[in-house]
Design a binder for these strands. Structure first.
Lengths: 337, 337
DNA sequence: CTGTTAGCGCTTTCAA
DNA sequence: TTGAAAGCGCTAACAG
């Protein structure tokens, strides 16, 4: 593998000059540039970015840490981030946490060792703990989807509370009064805000809040959704609609409803946040709040790149607009309700 | 940011010793080790992997290049690769090609500059061109999903031809005789093999092959599926079933069928390769061949890691078993057919 | 068990 | 316009 030293020797110039043509430095005589370039090609030279990173102290790498790219919401977010990063000349390195604090910590450590230029993360916990090192080292950091307590830093997400409130108000407008909500862990700020919106909507409508209708799970995945709805169905009161705080919980919820022979939406309705995937063009089933995942990813990179250039500008907190999609998973409540 | 030099000085040892404790080298006195470790902690030392990569000539990084992680098949494959890589101590860096040769080339170059230890790729083209440098530099390489002409290298995929043949035989068994097939570009080896399987099944059944029923698009996405089926419906003969070579084409196909007021599967059936996503637990719609995407990702990393250790062992070509899922998107042909 | 020394491949003053 | 020299942070003989 040729190094700039090999090129320099063959071209009869110094490594400095080779480095200059590599980086399009202006002060190189055209003649020299041509000669060096042809040697570069001839020797199949490929610069070693580890070497230049070592001296430049920058790696052109952005790390993205998400709960689970298997969830279409995060897949899309990741894709948005990747496209934007690529456009800005950054490579993306990523990891899935599965909502596991330890995994998150391990990835952060790994990425820190690689001296990433910035981090985009949907943190597992609202505690700052895992992010302490990142912050102390002043590594540009953008939170997506979820916020961290007492941490004022760049963030891009949506107005979960307001959107959840609209969603529940819509349900109330349909005549639903016994509305359950199923959520992941209480640690998840996005989910918590959705629950807040749920409470606010009920409060405004003068519907008493029944804590038995607010269920928490652990990881917001399909299995948890199924488990929570099974529990829900075994207790009173029986809801006429279920609000799943994310797409996976909703799927799991429907599984549980079906196994208990409830039809959706005839017997019990279900709504959620986020879409499931491209196949939803075929079966636009869930009435849901759709967050602009792709744009969230793009935005996160935009903000991150801005932060790299302006270390001291004040943090931005960007809330993107979501889409309210009325589809087929909930119907007006029966008059007997 | 503390370096091993700082630690060495404070601990009153040489950098070599610090390096040794960092790498769990056995020849360090327990006492020294303890002292160094406490200093490491105290100074919040984080090793710089760029520096060690420079001397070790290895980066513990695997690059994964896929057409589009937004497609659930590739999402799952990526997740499998990431999990396995993580287990083996490698970080994953990735890029989407969108079936664009130029984008692919750009990513390869970028990853080569980063001195990745290995590459997993679903190549855009069956021509070896973009991979030439990778091969010349003897960078461990594993092809997934698609093969490259005249390139004998590690590969993990499925037996596309056999599976496609089974699928079409199944359709024939249902009484279908006019079966169309829609595909991405002719460049895609996996798709080509599926078409071969289609031809073989028809041949075996003594059904003449009508070239008008074999349609090629460009990128195998939803839009292409819609476009191809639109074209199909405007010409004779009218198929009783459509075989879409991937999931996205199938979705697009259904969109086109619906807009032309054909019911699926009553009027025209449709089958495909690969599932769409987690939400298919709710609407298991497409009768399809399901490739074990997660395992493909895991396997690819396994093989890659093996290759790193055994540069000269002979290449493996692993074909994983697929699942034949009979669901609701195709029915027995009408007797009038 | 420990330290000295010589780089890994590249960039960056500084001086010419 | 160009080059000499120093060094980024770490590892790896080699000698002790």
């Amino acid at each position: 593998m040729a190094t700039i030293y090999d090129v320099a020797r063959k071209a009869g110039v110094s490594t400095t000059t080779v480095s200059r043509v590599l980086n399009n430095h202006p002060y190189v005589r055209e003649e020299t540039r041509i000669k060096v370039q042809s040697l570069l090609k001839e020797l199949h030279f490929i610069p070693n970015s580890n070497a230049s990173s070592l001296v430049r102290k920058t790696t052109n790498t952005i790390a993205v840490i998400l709960p689970d790219v298997t969830n279409h919401f995060f897949t899309t977010l990741l894709r948005g981030a990747e496209d934007q990063a690529n456009e800005d000349g950054f490579a993306v390195i990523f990891g899935n946490t599965d909502e596991d604090i330890q995994k998150e910590q391990t990835y952060i450590q790994m990425f820190l060792e690689r001296r990433i230029d910035g981090l985009i993360i949907a943190p597992v916990s609202p505690k700052v703990i895992n992010l302490k090192t990142v912050i102390k080292r002043e590594i540009p950091l953008v939170l997506v989807d979820r916020e961290v307590e007492a941490l004022i830093t760049d963030f891009v997400g949506t107005d979960n509370q307001r959107n959840a409130q609209s969603l529940v108000e819509y349900l109330i407008g349909l005549g639903h009064k016994t509305i359950a909500i199923i959520s992941g862990s209480q640690e998840n700020s996005a989910h918590r805000q959705r629950i807040d919106g749920y409470r606010a909507a009920l409060l405004n409508a003068g519907i008493p809040i029944d804590e038995r209708l607010i269920l928490y799970g652990d990881k917001p995945n399909i299995e948890t959704g199924t488990r929570l709805v099974r529990n829900l169905l075994q207790q009173a009161p029986r809801p006429t609609t279920i609000f799943a705080v994310n797409n996976f919980l909703a799927i799991g919820g429907v599984v549980a409803l079906r196994e208990a022979n409830f039809n959706v939406p005839e017997d019990i309705g279900i709504v959620c946040f986020d879409d499931n995937d491209s196949a939803s063009v075929l079966n636009p089933f869930f009435t849901s709040i759709n967050q602009p995942a792709y744009m969230m990813g793009q935005m996160a990179v935009d903000i991150l790149v801005h932060r790299m250039k302006h270390k001291n500008s004040s943090p931005t907190r960007v809330l993107l607009e979501s889409n309210f999609l009325i589809r087929g998973s909930v119907k007006p409540a029966r008059s007997i309700d």
